[in-house]
């Protein structure tokens, strides 16, 4: 969906940023969004405070609320998919190489 949405709006995207923090995703406020999400999902509370402030300063308070909301949604969806055995389709396997993932990593 990330690649498709970027293509739909003519936005450049570097998918490697999902797995490699040293890579710039090339999306507006992308580095701040990745730092916020990384701190939010199991990070140190002080890191989260700093990341939240940085994202708010870079993209505004609505971006913080929306990023937290989307992260919450995918915390839910990840658990549902993994716990119920939803199969991974061919299209998702096809982008594994873009993310640096091995086929064996895919359930």
């Amino acid at each position: 969906m990330l690649r498709a949405s970027a293509h739909a709006t003519g936005q450049a995207i570097d998918l490697r940023a999902i797995t490699d923090r040293a890579t710039d995703p090339l999306i507006d406020a992308g580095i701040g969004l990745l730092a916020f999400v990384t701190a939010l999902i199991g990070g140190d509370p002080s890191d989260l405070d700093n990341a939240r402030t940085a994202l708010r300063d870079a993209a505004g308070p609505d971006a913080v609320v929306r990023a937290a909301a989307v992260a919450g949604n995918f915390q839910m969806m990840n658990r549902i998919v993994d716990a119920t055995g939803v199969p991974i389709g061919p299209s998702m396997r096809a982008i594994a190489a873009d993310l640096g993932l091995e086929a064996a990593d895919l359930a």
Partner: peptide
Amino acid sequence: LAAVRGLSRAQMELVAARVSYLNDCFF
């Protein structure tokens, strides 16, 4: 795919993809 809801769709999907990666989920 061009939805904007506080974040652009690409920004939303970037968040989603990172969450899934951190959860070891390929969804």
